[in-house]
Nucleic acid binder design. Structure first.
Length: 303
DNA sequence: CCCTGTCAAGTCACG
DNA sequence: CGTGACTTGACAGGG
């Protein structure tokens, strides 16, 4: 089991998501931005190793406009050495890595242009993971997409479009339940047809479900991840008290997290903490686990 | 220097 | 019908 946090670190003094406005685009601006983002990523990863945090989500903002027509600069070649170095570091320390395209990536979009742009973005994210030299246990997690007034046909469209994807994308793609439209049961239906692994978002499930109990879902979900996929990834977050249901908490609710961990034994999973204070909550969660090893299967970082 | 409207992209729920 | 929310705020112009 590993514990991780997404994209940025709030205590380290740099961001790996530096960007600029589209009208300011130039190859030079792109080079300096990506260079700074890569340097910051390395800094975050070093911090994570020093603190035993071996699960990390790399931001899709690493290379601004990577899948936009304006970007013709061969950043893949230009930064190949930097990516390789970071990748060696990741493999040496046995990191687990994920990426999460933003809401504009919709594999079941009826609009051909939206689908094209979505696939373009997936190709970009695959390139990042490939340049890092990571195997197919490094995953790209997306939601099923929109409903477009007809859920059944929208799920069919997802399946059809998924099947047409290049194997390099298929090997890394996993689907995640969302908080409004597609539940875990929907994802499992799609899995039956495509064999795509299903990533369990605990928080979304609490808000949007078909009455399934978490404890009953763990085995079926676990089975959707094959050997090459690595152990299942899970997204966990806490409700921000007194805010609308679904808003992410500022810091982790350790009592709730402990209860969740207890319910997952004996399944070995990697847990992404989607909490606003990022590494701070990850450290708190790790401390909890170290103080009570019975909460997890295996040791933190041991898988 | 700080404030804040806006940013490449899409969908849906809510008020 | 405009706005907020989404895995993640940061840029850049104006005061």
């Amino acid at each position: 089991m590993r514990i991780g946090y997404p994209c940025i670190n709030r205590s380290i003094g740099c961001t790996p998501s530096r960007t600029f406005r589209l009208p300011s685009y130039s190859d030079e601006r792109l080079r300096e931005t990506v260079k700074a983002n890569l340097a910051c990523l390395m800094k975050i990863l070093s911090y994570n190793v020093a603190h035993g945090i071996l699960f990390f989500r790399i931001t899709s903002d690493m290379v601004p406009f990577a899948s936009h027509p304006v970007c013709t600069f061969p950043w893949q070649k230009h930064f190949a050495d930097e990516f390789r170095t970071i990748g060696e570091f990741l493999r040496f320390h046995r990191f687990r890595i994920s990426m999460h395209p933003d809401q504009f990536v919709l594999l079941n979009a009826p609009d051909a242009g939206i689908l094209d742009r979505s696939i373009g973005d997936l190709i970009y994210q695959v390139q990042i993971l490939d340049l890092l030299g990571l195997d197919n246990s490094a995953k790209i997690q997306i939601h099923v997409g929109g409903v477009y007034g007809d859920k059944t046909s929208s799920m069919e469209r997802f399946i059809k479009n998924y099947e047409r994807l290049d194997d390099s994308i298929k090997g890394r793609l996993v689907i995640e339940n969302d908080e409004r439209l597609y539940t875990i049961s929907d994802c499992l239906v799609i899995h039956e047809r495509t064999r795509i692994p299903v990533l369990f978002d605990v928080f979304h499930h609490a808000i949007n479900n078909n009455g399934e109990q978490t404890v009953d879902l763990l085995a079926p979900l676990n089975n959707t991840w094959k050997r090459d996929d690595g152990i299942p990834m899970v997204d966990y977050s806490s409700q921000q008290p007194k805010k609308r249901a679904g808003s992410h908490a500022e810091c982790i609710d350790l009592k709730d997290f402990r209860t969740f961990l207890q319910s997952t034994v004996p399944f070995d999973i990697d847990i992404m903490l989607e909490i606003k204070d990022k590494e701070k909550s990850a450290l708190a969660a790790l401390t909890l686990v170290h103080d009570d090893p019975r909460l997890v299967t295996g040791n933190p970082g041991d898988t």
